[in-house]
């Protein structure tokens, strides 16, 4: 089975995000960018499927700026076989909406014919949590979101999902889209020899016009501002003082 893994280049999760004072967005100049943490887990899962003999090829796809090449190389170093980059923009501030991403991915799936798409459940920049579900709908496939455990049996995948009340297990018919949660696995670090090897793996570059897909946004961004700041309060010196303060504030009876 061929597995396709879409990955996104995002601001590193350790970087303190700065909102530009003119309300035009988040400052992405000269900040560390990395693979979206959820996508790392998706790549890891796909590579493990290959190592277990259940998948024969892992193709990674990224959509965005040209620099996403680096992100794709990281995935190749983790063990993916081949990469596709769809260059949509030169401006890293230009975030392509999940609807357009899903349309491009659908076109890639029609060409590549994977049996499975594994993607992160959300990107930590726009926090949309939508691309996997949208892609699955457009392909008419089953979807299994927020996966914390996945096993395969013939043309079925059994997926345990993290839901509000606990865990839900479902069975989906393959082909399917699975979106992964943080507890599915712990992604590996690429070894130096694998990083060297990844440089020789194929990386194809495309543009949205190769697929004749309109990626214009449906949501107009009016402004981006900092949230209301919370001020630090007081440090109390004992449990007794804490209880007194909480009573004063009407927080406890």
């Amino acid at each position: 089975m061929k597995v396709l893994v879409p990955i996104k280049r995002v601001i590193d999760y350790n970087v303190k995000v700065r909102v530009k004072s003119d309300g035009s967005g988040v400052d992405l100049a000269n900040v560390k960018m990395s693979m979206n943490p959820f996508d790392e887990i998706a790549v890891e899962e796909a590579v493990r499927l290959k190592e277990a003999g259940k998948a024969n090829e892992v193709v990674v796809v990224s959509i965005g700026v040209k620099q996403a090449q680096e992100t794709l190389r990281t995935a190749l170093a983790m063990g993916a076989d081949r990469a596709i980059l769809i260059v949509t923009t030169e401006d890293p501030q230009d975030d392509i909406e999940p609807l357009a991403i899903a349309k491009l991915l659908k076109a890639v799936c029609e060409e590549e014919k994977p049996a499975l798409v594994i993607c992160g459940k959300q990107a930590i920049d726009n926090d949309m949590n939508a691309t996997g579900q949208m892609l699955s709908a457009m392909l008419g496939w089953a979807q299994a979101t927020f996966a914390s455990k996945v096993t395969f049996d013939g043309d079925r995948a059994t997926v345990t999902r993290e839901v509000d009340g606990g865990l839900q297990t479902i069975k989906v018919r393959i082909p399917a889209v699975i979106t992964v949660d943080l507890r599915l696995n712990e992604p590996r670090y690429a070894s130096l020899p694998n990083i060297m090897k990844s440089k020789k793996k194929p990386l194809t570059e495309k543009t949205p016009s190769d697929y004749a897909i309109d990626i214009s946004p449906r949501l107009e961004v009016v402004k981006t501002v900092e949230p209301d700041a919370r001020k630090a309060g007081v440090i109390v010196s004992s449990v007794g003082e804490l209880v007194a303060k909480l009573r004063q504030a009407g927080a406890i009876g």
């Binding site: 601001i11 946004p217 961004v221 009016v222 981006t224 900092e226």
Partner: peptide, 27 residues
């Protein structure tokens, strides 16, 4: 499109939502 995690409905077309783990609020 879907508009996830709306934190304020401004009007019938306009919505606020947190992005970047709540480090920014986008309209």
């Amino acid at each position: 499109m879907v508009i996830s995690d709306v934190s304020r409905v401004v009007d019938a077309d306009t919505f606020e939502r947190p992005i970047y783990a709540g480090n920014a609020i986008q309209t």
